[in-house]
């Protein structure tokens, strides 16, 4: 009789072995009835345990469905529902406090919310950013003047950075020079929205928080759209297959004025390269993949 450990057999049942190893186990199974019966029992155990926990989830979803309340004068809330409301309220307040405190809703969270099929999570996912524009404006709240002043990655050459970003976003990418508007180019980098790269270019004025221009491949409305997220305002528009979002702690008219400037006279980095004004630098590293869950 061949000796195979339960560790190996459970890994086989779970489909965690390499193909070669699986074949080797299958060969043993063909020849050894005792091992084959053991694997059958392990498979049975595995599937029943999995099924049991699927049933638990189904049961919880049933509980969350509010039962029909009796009609009649006044408001009737069962103790069970009152407890649920209390718990839900406590959970939501906790999440809200986390977000306000600056701990919560980092860039990784949209993935967490989207990775579940749990129908009862709708109320939570609703509180998360719905689009990449919303997402990057949330990231904007993490920036400050100190973010730039302590950064070791200060990059002096806007043309070089523009060229590198264009390689990831597209040759039509425009990086405006906003010096005439009082904003100096500080640095550019690649972020990500899901699996797609998003360019972030940061400018700094004489005072106040940084101004950021985000750009991502995609089609959107050509007309400018202004949105405000607390103290941060944003203007987005689309041009040549790239969606832009300009965000900063500025009011609508000022942001629109900057967007005018950005849209009007920004040179395309690819054009710079075409006339040989800069040589092709190595591309920026690709954005990090989403964390494995």
């Amino acid at each position: 009789m061949t000796e195979l450990s339960d560790e190996l057999l459970v890994a086989y049942v779970d489909g965690q072995l390499e193909r070669k190893q699986s074949r080797a186990v299958e060969k043993v199974l063909e020849q050894d009835d005792v091992i084959a019966r053991r694997v059958h029992a392990l498979k049975d155990a595995h599937s029943r345990l999995e099924a049991a926990f699927e049933a638990v989830l189904a049961g919880e979803e049933t509980i969350v469905e509010p039962p029909p309340e009796p009609s009649g004068p006044g408001i009737f809330i069962t103790w069970r529902n009152a407890a649920k409301i209390g718990l839900a309220g406590a959970g939501l307040v906790a999440a809200l406090l986390l977000a306000i405190a600056g701990y919560g809703w980092p860039l990784v969270l949209p993935n967490f919310a989207g990775s579940r099929s749990d129908t009862a999570e709708v109320e939570w996912t609703g509180s998360l950013p719905a689009t990449w524009q919303d997402d990057v404006v949330h990231a904007q709240t993490l920036l400050s003047r100190e973010t730039l002043s302590v950064s070791p990655e200060r990059q002096a050459n806007q043309d070089l950075i523009g060229f590198q970003l264009a390689q990831a976003i597209g040759p039509a990418l425009k990086l405006p020079d906003l010096k005439s508007e009082g904003f100096r180019f500080m640095r550019g980098q690649l972020l990500r929205a899901g699996d797609e790269p998003v360019a972030q270019v940061l400018y700094l004025g004489a005072s106040g928080a940084p101004l950021a221009l985000y750009a991502k491949k995609g089609e959107g409305a050509a007309d400018r759209v202004f949105k405000s997220y607390g103290a941060i305002g944003s203007v987005s528009w689309s041009e040549d297959g790239i969606v832009y979002l300009l965000a900063g702690e500025l009011n609508g008219p000022r942001l629109t004025q900057l967007a005018d400037k950005a849209q009007a006279d920004a040179p395309k980095p690819s054009a710079l390269n075409a006339v040989g004004s800069v040589s092709a630098p190595p591309p920026l590293p690709p954005p990090r993949p989403p964390p494995k869950r």
Binding site: E60, V64, D118
Partner: peptide
């Protein structure tokens, strides 16, 4: 998320 916490 609350149902998942309750289940846990």
């Amino acid at each position: 998320m609350l149902p998942r916490l309750m289940r846990f």
